[in-house]
Design a protein around this nucleic acid. Structure first.
Length: 490
RNA sequence: GGCGCUAUCGUCUAGGGGUUAGGACGGAAGAUUCUCAAUCUUCAAACCCGGGUUCGAUUCCCGGUAGCGCUACCA
């Protein structure tokens, strides 16, 4: 491919700020970004904010917050509302060519008359045929109107475009309604604004959700009407809920919001990885991929056509069920791929935000003990809690009793452990030797010796390896907790 | 209703006229370990239905069914 054509490759992500950043939108952004980076193109971020009624600042913040978290960046940024003159100019050009007409019918609320052959609304009666003179007169008189595209009728004309994912698309113009370009308040509609900006910003590839596939015929008409080159389209299969329905905040709650993933402790790298695997495949069985590998592997040919299910549990019984198990697994993979120092630095703010005082040195020591035991960053709070608290939360003393043992054995073990630990160096090998020797002395299996100690210091049976844990905890805390355990048994 | 898109294990997917239909997550069993993880091994699990075309269709074509999308002066 010649260099210049790569330089000219321009894609855009054009969210409308009417809600929080949706995971589906995030994926669209990512695919655009990947395509741009793979081809050395330009990534444009454009806020499609022509719906003044529904725009909110909170939404703008959510979108930018989410995108910044993704940490992918973009090259150019625009706001549609600042480009209204351009939209009207293009609308006017289309109108001057008589490819659009003024519709003075008042904006309706309920059902409309069906003017089409198949009881489908195609246009409002009488407006298409209005003479230019009459139309001008009524407009001059101050009558408000919407500007509608004059879709070719009754000539069996076909509108066509090629989609990089869905192939050749053809539709009869007679099945397309006379869609609005300008509203009666003079604001451009989405279709007009979007196409006008795509033309002006010289967008070469439009990669967006499949929900726009049917709209693309209208867009093709606009591009053609504006004498512009039609960009390459690539529609993405939609992300849907386990029951096949569209992901919606109202029905599915926070699962659909990018911030939910961020707040739970997904690594952006893993989140991106997960989203890429929904509706796209590198076709070589790779699953865990870095962003660089994704850039390298990404192509429009790898996108498939069927909607992808985000496999969360509808009523989540556990917090983890809010997420697709594969997302969790990928996050765990990416966590384990992080150097300890980096993971530790990521974990630190999570721990501190909960109110625990931890030094970064201590966190560095804890991190290797838990990094194979957490799927989400927030799991540090449950996996390593006993390192942070002064006093262990209450636990059942029965937990202290080892396999095939009784309370008496637990007591015996703990008392002996106290003696041993009082005079053993607190590092792995000495602890290992001393404790195993003590077990043997008492005629116990290593596990029978270790479990009461583990429960005494961790407050539960499932925890990181014992010697490393003791080392991080230190002698004072260890002995104090063993004392507390002995009290519990008495 | 009209128009369009889609259909491989529970989920994400690979594949493709002749294959033991491959991988991953999740599930089950086992190995390993001081528990839990991690790791390793093994197992169960799929071509929506019906017609064609063909020597042979899961793959190509048609129909059905189902799901989804669009059908606004929302985007």
């Amino acid at each position: 491919m010649p260099l210049y054509s790569k330089v000219m490759l321009r894609v855009r992500f054009a969210p409308s700020p009417t809600g929080f950043l949706h995971v589906g939108s995030a994926r669209t952004f990512i695919f655009n970004w990947l395509y741009a980076r793979h081809n050395g193109g330009t990534m444009v971020l454009r806020l499609d904010d022509t719906d003044v009624e529904r725009n909110t600042d909170a939404s703008v913040n959510s979108i930018f917050g989410g995108l910044r978290w993704l940490n992918l960046g973009w090259d150019e940024e625009y706001k549609q509302s600042e480009r209204l003159a351009l939209h009207r100019q293009i609308a006017d050009a289309i109108f001057q060519k008589d490819l659009a007409y003024r519709d003075f019918t008042p904006a309706h609320t309920g059902d409309t008359e069906k003017s089409g052959a198949n009881q489908t609304w195609l246009f409002n009666p009488g407006m298409r045929e209005l003479s230019r003179a009459e139309s001008d007169r009524r407009a001059a008189a101050g009558e408000s109107f919407a500007l509608r595209f004059r879709v070719p009728r009754g000539r069996n004309e076909q509108v066509r475009f090629t989609d990089a994912v869905y192939g050749e698309q053809v539709k009869l113009a007679d099945d397309i309604e006379d869609f609005a370009l300008l509203r009666s308040d003079g604001m451009p509609t989405y279709h007009l604004a979007s196409c006008a900006d795509d033309i002006d910003l010289r967008i070469s590839h439009i990669i967006r959700g499949q929900d726009h596939l049917s709209n693309t015929y209208k867009h093709a008409l606009i591009f053609e009407g504006a004498a512009a080159k039609i960009p390459q389209f690539a529609h993405l299969p939609l992300l849907v809920a386990p029951d096949g329905s569209k992901l919606s905040k109202r029905r599915h709650g926070p699962v659909v919001s990018v911030t939910t993933y961020r707040d739970a402790g997904f690594l952006p790298e893993a989140f991106i990885n997960f989203l890429c695997l929904l509706g796209w495949s590198p076709k070589d069985n790779r699953e865990k991929m870095t962003r660089h590998e994704l850039i390298e592997a990404f192509s429009l040919e790898g996108i498939n056509r069927a909607n992808a299910v985000v496999n969360f549990k509808e009523p989540a019984a556990t917090p983890d069920e809010t997420f697709d198990p594969k997302a969790l697994w990928l996050n765990a993979e990416h966590i384990r791929a992080l150097p300890v120092s980096e993971l530790s630095a990521q974990l630190l703010p999570v721990v501190r935000a909960t109110g625990f005082q931890v030094t970064s040195e201590k966190m560095d020591a804890i991190t290797p003990l838990i990094r194979e035991r957490i799927k989400l960053l927030r799991d540090v709070l449950t996996a390593a809690d006993f390192f942070f608290v002064e006093k262990l939360p209450p636990y059942d003393p029965a937990e202290l009793i080892p396999q095939k043992g009784d309370a008496a054995m637990a007591l015996k073990v703990l008392k002996r452990a106290k003696e041993v630990l009082a005079q053993t160096e607190f590092s792995h090998d000495p602890l290992d030797h001393a404790l195993r020797a003590a077990a043997q002395e008492m005629g116990l299996k290593a596990g029978q010796m270790f479990q009461p100690i583990r429960v005494a210091v961790c407050g539960r049976k499932n925890a990181p390896p014992l010697f490393e844990t003791l080392q991080v905890l230190g002698r004072d805390t260890t002995l104090a907790r063993i004392d507390q355990a002995i009290e519990k048994l008495n």
